[in-house]
Write a protein that binds this DNA or RNA. Sequence first.
DNA 1: ACAGAAACATACTGATCGGTATGTTGTCAA
DNA 2: TTGACAACATACCGATCAGTATGTTTCTGT
Lengths: 217, 217
Amino acid sequence: MNLQEPIKETKAPPEQVLDAAAACFMEKGYGGASLDDVARHMGATKGRIYHYFSSKSDLMHAVRKRAMELNFAVIRPGFDSDLPPVEKFRAMAHAHALHMMERQDYQTALFDSLHLHMTRGTSTGQDALVDDFITDRRAFEDMFREVLLAGQASGEFAFGTLSYALHTILATLNSTLYWYSPRNGDTPEIRQQIADEQVAMALRALGAMDPMTKDKT
Amino acid sequence: MNLQEPIKETKAPPEQVLDAAAACFMEKGYGGASLDDVARHMGATKGRIYHYFSSKSDLMHAVRKRAMELNFAVIRPGFDSDLPPVEKFRAMAHAHALHMMERQDYQTALFDSLHLHMTRGTSTGQDALVDDFITDRRAFEDMFREVLLAGQASGEFAFGTLSYALHTILATLNSTLYWYSPRNGDTPEIRQQIADEQVAMALRALGAMDPMTKDKT
DNA sequence: ACAGAAACATACTGATCGGTATGTTGTCAA
DNA sequence: TTGACAACATACCGATCAGTATGTTTCTGT
């Protein structure tokens, strides 16, 4: 029957629901945002939400899934490149840092959810859904972990414990979620510069030998 | 009559309420944790909470206040010392990083609250209370800002934009909130090592000349 | 010994929220 | 034209929650 549309990808309504949910979860937190809030945010009612999602936690899971997909898509080009570790890391880190500023809603919702489920308490949803989301997160971290390991092996990086370094570096790249707000002067150039400086700091933190070590800015 | 106890510091009941609130707010988030949850967590009922605090947001404000007091107290010794900027930063950063791991409950609640009020929406409480809490946070950051500036002026630090560097470094030192969990092998030594490595990475990120590679001036 | 206040617990209320059941409208194929 | 289904809106329900009102016990000063 539907052989005519295997690639057709219209702006599906569920996408709008996800956007509204991400925005509300970011503004009020998962527990603080009601489904009526989400519906009101997109000028609709709860009926629309429940037409596409079976529960609040299911909606949250969809938001997490979407956020994770975006994360993977953003760093994959850099990861798949055949650059040396330092340059590969630079590409991945820069893309990721930029992405954190451009999709604060999804990323904030994702991290809040991640954080809630790590500090014990599966209070918000089901275990199974959360588990494979933790698995995804692990896979994402592993992409960075692999690059750090390669760089360490080749002597381009010099850091201590891999696990600590990895988490700390990711926190560095995510840090804009906690202070950057696209206010008045939110030109793309500024975000570019922030990402540049963050990557530079991350590289120094990793002990990357700066090609221009004694360069002054 | 009470001349005998000017320094006596009994474990005041409100302190227990704050502890329970901090734990619950961390586990379920501010919106997700009910006051009955908090009461149950300390084996009491809501009556006890409302005997000391006038509302849920008032309780949250008290938790924030307490967390902020702890933050100041922890870094003040290093800040008040007359060490050179790099060593002063090291002392402050190390104490702060350790503190993040030891008081995850209060700090997580504090950061969640901070984050919620920065991503717009004063949905959780009153404006006035939040404003002077933002002021306190600014004051805390300024203590690090001052040290970074001093280090930059003396040539011990070499970073880009001060504001970006400051936020990124603080995110680095706070990063344990998002992955460290006092699990099985949670000896104080391990926390000490984590803090050490984090400070080392922060110093490299700030462009501090490593005593290993470059002799101290 | 006794009044009163501090320190809670118990019982209740109005509002809100997640979820469901049902109604309404547009679309499209036969 | 119709009827069947998708895509919602509307109305409603039981549970939960912040907040309050009121009891009950323990401490305290006099």
